[in-house]
């Protein structure tokens, strides 16, 4: 049971959503955009999140479209992960999204919700980091387009009241080779203790989740991956380029994570180089 009350608003346009947020923020302290709701409701039950107003974006057609436009594929922020998986527009996206939560939850978890999650994993960002995705963000001054990698640094760097409308990816990534390695502590449905996505297209690129307290990719790591050095030397160099201290928690010690990370890089690299 959620023990506090809030108002619920369901706008039908992006403009309505943003203007509602701005106006209501003048009166109420805690206004939230709401998409799939799985995280907000589970946090609300434990008082980890409180809200005075929630703005449900699922009735906004722009946030719900999956559309081919010129050479890009556009994914609305309120599409569920299963809706994207079922369309299977890009095998990399399908593969990553199938690892997130369980099948039933993926009928509610949305692309935008996962990208903006308060949890540290945010695995939906991994393919976006690797495919030079662009995103559209709506705010008080209209809609702007940004390169995903220029606006995502540990989390999505958008202003209060701004709304993630959609994500677009170049169709040419459809045929790119990739390797997914996702390790969990036990079973199959769980948060990852390591998730590595490696993509081969004009060289290799890698993105990581579960290793640090945020998902990441790095130009320096990608440069080493394409350096043609001995594989052991390459892995050691990458270890020095991890942008933070490897996580240690009840699911895995940092030693274990580091060992998994080295093995995962070796497997993905070997797999893609052979290809």
């Amino acid at each position: 049971m959620i023990s506090f009350n809030f108002k619920y608003i369901r706008p039908s346009t992006v403009e309505e959503a943003v203007s509602s947020y701005i106006q209501l923020s003048r009166v109420y302290k805690r206004v939230l955009y709401y998409s799939g709701g799985t995280e907000i409701l589970s946090f609300a039950r434990n008082h980890a999140i409180e809200a005075d107003v929630i703005i449900d974006i699922k009735a906004i057609p722009e946030c719900r479209r999956l559309q081919h436009h010129q050479n890009r594929i556009i994914y609305g922020a309120a599409l569920t992960l299963n809706e994207i998986i079922e369309e299977n527009t890009l095998p990399l996206l399908t593969s990553v999204f199938k690892g997130i939560a369980d099948h039933t939850l993926r009928n509610r978890i949305t692309l935008g919700g996962n990208i903006c999650s308060k949890l540290i994993y945010r695995e939906a960002v991994l393919p976006l980091m690797l495919t030079e995705a662009e995103i559209r963000i709506a705010g008080e001054n209209g809609v702007r387009r940004e390169k995903f990698n220029s606006i995502f640094d540990k989390s999505l760097r958008i202003e209060k009241g701004e709304l993630l409308v959609d994500v677009s990816i170049d169709k040419s990534f459809e045929g790119a080779g990739f390797c997914s390695i996702r390790k969990v502590n036990r079973g199959e449905v769980d948060y990852p203790i390591l998730h590595l996505e490696m993509l081969k297209r004009k060289g290799l690129k890698a993105a990581f989740s579960g290793v640090l307290n945020f998902p990441f990719r790095s130009d320096a790591i990608d440069a080493v991956l394409n350096d043609n050095v001995d594989i052991d030397e390459m892995i050691e160099k990458i270890m020095h380029l991890i942008p933070g201290k490897i996580k240690q928690d009840q699911w895995a010690t940092w030693h274990y994570r580091q060992m998994l990370l080295k093995k995962a890089i070796r497997s993905a690299y070997t797999h893609l180089e052979v290809r």
Binding site: Y8, L41, S42, H103, T104, L105, N107, R108
Partner: peptide, 19 residues
Amino acid sequence: CTVLLEDRPVKACLILAVE
């Protein structure tokens, strides 16, 4: 708590009735 919403299974504990 699984129910079907428009023929898809969902977990009713993580959905608002107003939605």
